[in-house]
Design a protein around this nucleic acid. Structure first.
Length: 234
DNA sequence: AATAGAGCCAACCGCCACTAA
DNA sequence: GTTAGTGGCGGTTGGCTCTAT
């Protein structure tokens, strides 16, 4: 792009009128050739800017509400697996954008995840001394949410077996047990659950975890809490 | 009521990968 | 094989809002 054109391009927040124009032109021309589309529209925006606005805000079926606890858990889980692969994570959260997830991570989850990691390391150290179940408020926050109004039971996303009901809340998380072994089992289960989801969309993990299919036959009660709802809408 | 600081989020920037010429 | 154009991605920024003092 010529430098003389740069000065002519608008920047900053989009106006409603611009949104309308972009929506119309994308409807007519499709989601491609953004530079041409930008020129065609008459908007003084770059193709990149148009694409971003469309992808992050105007695209149909986008959710604009708050991130739910289930989604939050998914983000935490997938970030643990994949790191900052926001677009990849976003593909597992229909209606959410990579930008939204990235922002949510940075503003809501990063500190909690770091605190959890810190706790995990502490717990790891103590596990070398004795196999105890340390209390871990940090980890609990990481899973349940610092300001969550959700009760303990609702915090259980999956893995809600009858045995968990007998645990002391202070020692429990949905994965809230801070025993390193229990944490790892929970982490593994969590990973497996995502592989189940992955198999619906991708071929890359086919056959990797032969044991997980059983999770798909969890009880109706379990399905009513957490991410099962996302997989198996009732 | 005023102000500073923190938090949040939309938008931008730069880089990389892919594709067509 | 090379190059230019394009789209996608992750990191960063800037401005607005909220909250504490």
């Amino acid at each position: 792009m010529a430098n003389s054109d740069v000065g002519k391009l608008r920047r900053g927040p989009w106006l409603g009128e611009e949104d309308d124009i972009l929506t119309t032109i994308v409807g007519a021309l499709g989601e491609k050739h953004w530079d041409a589309l930008a020129k065609e529209s008459g908007l003084r925006r770059s193709g990149k800017s148009c694409r971003l606005r469309w992808m992050n805000y105007l695209r149909p079926n986008l959710k604009h509400g708050e991130i739910t606890h289930e989604e939050e858990h998914i983000i935490l889980d997938l970030h643990k697996q994949w790191g900052n692969k926001w677009s990849k994570i976003a593909k597992r959260l229909p209606g959410r954008t990579d930008n939204e997830i990235k922002n949510y991570w940075r503003s809501h989850l990063k500190k909690r995840a770091e605190a959890h990691q810190e706790c995990f390391q502490d717990a790891d150290k103590s596990s070398h001394q004795e196999f105890s179940t340390p209390r871990c408020e940090k980890s609990h926050d990481y899973i349940i949410g610092e300001s969550s109004s959700m009760n303990q039971k609702d915090g259980i996303l999956f893995g809600a077996s009858s045995s968990t009901e007998t645990l002391e809340p202070s020692n429990m998380n949905a994965f809230g047990n801070c025993s390193p072994y229990e944490n790892r089992i929970s982490d593994w289960l969590s990973s497996c659950c995502w592989l189940v989801e992955g198999l619906k969309h991708e071929e890359d993990c086919m056959g990797t975890y032969p044991g997980f299919c059983q999770l798909g036959s969890s009880s109706e009660e379990e399905k009513t809490h957490g991410v099962w709802d996302l997989w198996n809408p009732v």
